[in-house]
Design a protein around this nucleic acid. Structure first.
Length: 267
DNA sequence: ATGGTCGCTAAGCGA
């Protein structure tokens, strides 16, 4: 029985290419559970053996060739693993499992929400329409939830003004349009989830988890967005001790364009 | 300045 759990979420942008920095996360931070998105890896090609050697015996993958893909890498048992299909697209964008915290179970959902393309208009951009439909389906599903649960992942929306480097300059940029920001709030409220990152980090403080590869110097420019999230139902949020945004990981060797976010739960 | 850089997989797409 676990009385404490350290849970990390990370859009890894190819788990095979970035196995070395997944191992670095493990060696430097020793999370109990790592939730990955954009593994870009068919299930049979996931680098399980190397991770098992580091003590992560519970690995659950839901991937496909080339795109998307989510996974759990865990030192603690994962029960009742399921993947849900959204928008009947066949995309691998969700995996869930039940974990134990001090004798109480909770459900952990790992999401990779569609990015939504460039033009924030569902009439002319099918990818944006898909993103909105995906949010609709999340909302309807979350309304049916009961018990304690947690949602992590790359939700591809930075909902608050201090979640982006420039609120004004991003108002018409997919990921921070008023429509998306409002829809994300509605999705979160449908599941009665607390935005646990913002519970621990004051709203006045800018927080980013993603920085484009296209910047000359991502750190100096610091034009980031908070696209990655950790949500919890209220009783679980009361058990969250902290939030770590591992910004330094954006500067590791061959980095992902996202950095990990992490929380510790104590029963 | 409407660019720029990645990863997948083999020219173009998605992010």
């Amino acid at each position: 029985m676990q009385s404490s759990l350290k849970i990390a979420s990370w859009n890894i942008n190819s788990v095979r290419l970035r196995l070395p920095i997944v191992e670095k996360l493990i060696l430097d931070y020793a999370p109990d559970v790592i939730c990955l998105q954009e593994t870009k890896c068919p299930d049979g090609s996931f680098p399980e053996a190397a991770l098992r050697k580091l003590g992560y015996k519970h690995i659950e993958v839901h991937g496909q060739k080339g795109y998307h893909g989510v996974a759990f890498i865990s030192r603690v048992p994962l029960m009742d693993v399921e993947s849900r299909e959204f928008c009947q697209m066949g995309d691998t964008r969700h995996i869930a499992a039940t974990l134990d915290l001090g004798g109480s179970p909770f459900r952990l959902h790992n999401f990779y929400v569609p990015a939504g393309g460039d033009i924030p208009d569902p009439e002319v951009n099918d990818k944006f329409a898909h993103k909105l439909r995906f949010l609709d389906e999340m909302e309807e599903w979350f309304k049916t939830f009961s018990g304690e649960s947690m949602v992590v992942g790359d939700l591809n929306i930075a909902p608050y003004e201090t979640d982006v480097w420039s609120h004004k300059q991003l108002l018409k940029v997919v990921s921070h349009t008023p429509l998306e920001c409002q829809r994300l709030e509605e999705v979160r409220n449908a599941g009665r989830f607390v935005d646990t990152m913002r519970k621990h980090i004051p709203m006045e403080e800018k927080v980013y988890t993603w920085w484009s590869y296209r910047a000359k110097d991502w750190s100096a420019a610091n034009k980031g967005r908070r696209l990655d999230h950790i949500w919890m139902t209220p009783d679980l949020a009361d058990k969250s001790q902290n939030i770590d945004v591992l910004r330094d990981a954006r500067g590791w060797e061959k980095p992902s364009d996202h950095c990990p976010v992490m929380t510790v739960l104590k029963a």
